[in-house]
Amino acid sequence: MLDWIAGIGAANIAKVRSFGRATLMLFGAVIAKPQLVKNVPLTIKQIYVVGVQSLLIIVVSGLFIGMVMALQGYTILVGYGAEGSLGPMVALSLLRELGPVVTALLFAGRAGSALTAEIGLMKATEQLSSLEMMAIDPLRRIIAPRLWAGMISMPMLTLIFSAVGILGGHLVGVDWLGVDSGSYWSIMQSTVEWNKDVMNGIIKSLVFAFVIVWIATYKGYDSVPTSEGISKATTQTVVLSSLAVLGLDFVLTALMFGIE
């Protein structure tokens, strides 16, 4: 019994300590004096890795999700003769929820896991130690550009996802099911508000990006440097960041749209 309680205590202490280490890592990477001249090319390279290479999956998913939503929405709305509201339905769901959330989940799976594995392997092959012995701080050199690249890429991916989704909805709703194109756009325009809908979606995606890249880089940096340790860390990144995204989404939605 005592052992059991001690076990719970130890597990929690380990969690708190690990959170402390993650925070220290973040500060070491971000607060450290910025070396813009050196870091900009590194960050651009990382935007290529986490952003550009995620583009295809984001565009394809956005297109299909927009198309499916138009199909489902149409069958429901047409029953009330309100198929004209298809535009705002598709646009609002994408901008407020699906855009940021689905992009974040795909990003966690596509880019987050790759980040963890990459940094874990760098640790296992002594590349991080080697940097340290060369008097180069791996937090600044390796972690910081990846953090920034993720924070920059995610909102852009989210914008692209939502835009493609709205076009996909147009493709199915207007071109296929025959909703009037004018009303698809004009009712959407009269409903969607820039600040409330688009900006809030971007803010969400920034928060998600921060959480995902933080988890991903920390899990790699803190991984046990063996093949088993890295595979475990990669799985943890995907699971933990997906859960964090969904949980945070609820909190953010409640804050942004819940109470008028």
């Binding site: 392997l121 590349q127 340290e132 012995m133």
Partner: peptide, 17 residues
Amino acid sequence: EVRRQMSMLFQSGALFT
């Protein structure tokens, strides 16, 4: 600063891949 005067050859080489 001191580390710039030393260097280490790691067991695996640790080349940047």
